[in-house]
Design a protein around this nucleic acid. Structure first.
Lengths: 219, 219
DNA sequence: ATTTATTTTTAGACTTATCTAAATTATTTT
DNA sequence: AAAATAATTTAGATAAGTCTAAAAATAAAT
């Protein structure tokens, strides 16, 4: 099935809204995500329903069909792999990759994304810590731990961040904390929940506000 | 100036047709290149003339303005750099990269293509031997030698091909001749101008028709 | 130099995705 | 439960890019 970029964007939006809300997704919600008018959304979801990509009953909102979901996950996969490429290979920053990936995710090819995945050596997470679906569309929703909940004495690797605001990203740059950085929790301070962490540049103190916003994988 | 993919494709087509024909490009020629009807071309070139991207007088064909040419060269630059990426990094073959590059060349970004160029270590030619314009749009049209004119006993490296038709590309794959392949001319047969060439897989006989279509750099 | 053939342009129609404004249905409030 | 508000859908319009068919201009042939 050959979909337009617009159709793909609608499926992607419905996918992530459904994930966040768990029930049927409303017209208005979609219109806000796509930045378009509700009437345009109605038109499009009727078209998508024709193609059996969404379940739709008038005034009841939509949910993805199995095929619709499969396609949405494929787009998410493409988006996240392109983000990894931009960050790891082209030296973009965490905060710059999203917009470009929005374009790259719509490139049509049977083989491109699998070759890209192999080139990137099968990454499991994108720069924001979100899991990358595999070729078959399986997503490992393994519970990303926050740095704040890593036990004293244990090591972990940074796989993403929760807050991707510019100041936070710049702050992390200053601490030289990047994707893939290995951190070891030396001690925790019960008073303010700050922690002493060992990094490549030495030991640094990290506040609870910071450590709550860094996704890690335990080692 | 924000152009649609379609507008970009027209500029690119006019650019390469103008290069091949040196005078004004006719409506029919463009329609064949774009695979559309002549009437559609008329519509579009009138639109492009409005935007000062082409010079156009009714029934006289078109030529690119300075701005139009600049944009066309930028697209060519993008196309060729993406081709290098697909071939060198993602293990695509010569005959597979073109179609994908047709999509990738339309990705909009101020910085992407320069970062890609740096990542690829500033290649000078694409897989077909065509020169890659630099950031300012300058193209080095340096005189590539054809394999057919390499002297007996001398070695050379393949930097591109002239004919990029599918059958020819497949044929080269069979001979395991790729970009960067080192070829040594062992002997030439005056009768039919075929040559005996030493490659990585041994000595092979290459007809004049083939050797006239392979760009090489003398060693 | 006229006629014939070809190329190019115009006119009107179609599709996709969008919009505004009005009508309809659902949800809240009283 | 009726009235008021909010959400959704329909109807009609618009812009981009394409098409077919017909008209106009150019090029070729006799």
């Amino acid at each position: 099935m050959m979909l337009s970029q617009t159709e793909e964007n609608y499926l992607k939006a419905i996918y992530s809204l459904a994930y966040a809300n768990s029930n049927n997704v409303s017209t208005t919600l979609i219109s806000e995500a796509i930045k378009t008018k509700a009437s345009s959304v109605t038109d499009m979801i009727q078209k998508l329903a024709e193609k059996d990509l969404v379940h739709y009953k008038k005034y009841q909102g939509v949910s993805l069909t199995e095929i619709g979901q499969k396609i949405a996950v494929e787009i998410v996969r493409k988006h996240r792999l392109w983000e990894v490429f931009l960050l790891n290979k082209l030296d973009y920053n965490w905060d710059e990759v999203h917009e470009l990936a929005e374009q790259l995710e719509h490139i049509k090819s049977e083989t491109l994304i699998d070759k890209l995945e192999a080139f990137l050596e099968f990454p499991t997470h994108d720069p924001h810590g979100d899991p990358i679906p595999d070729k078959e569309g399986n997503i490992k929703h393994h519970n990303n731990t926050m740095l704040s909940s890593v036990e004293t004495g244990k090591s972990c690797v940074v796989i993403g961040i929760k807050d991707s605001s510019d100041p936070f990203l710049k702050f992390l740059d200053k601490l030289q904390i990047q994707l893939g950085s290995i951190l070891k929790v030396i001690s925790k301070e019960p008073f303010d929940n700050s922690m002493l962490v060992e990094t490549t540049i030495g030991s640094i103190s990290i506040s609870n506000q910071i450590s709550k916003n860094i996704f890690v994988k335990n080692l």
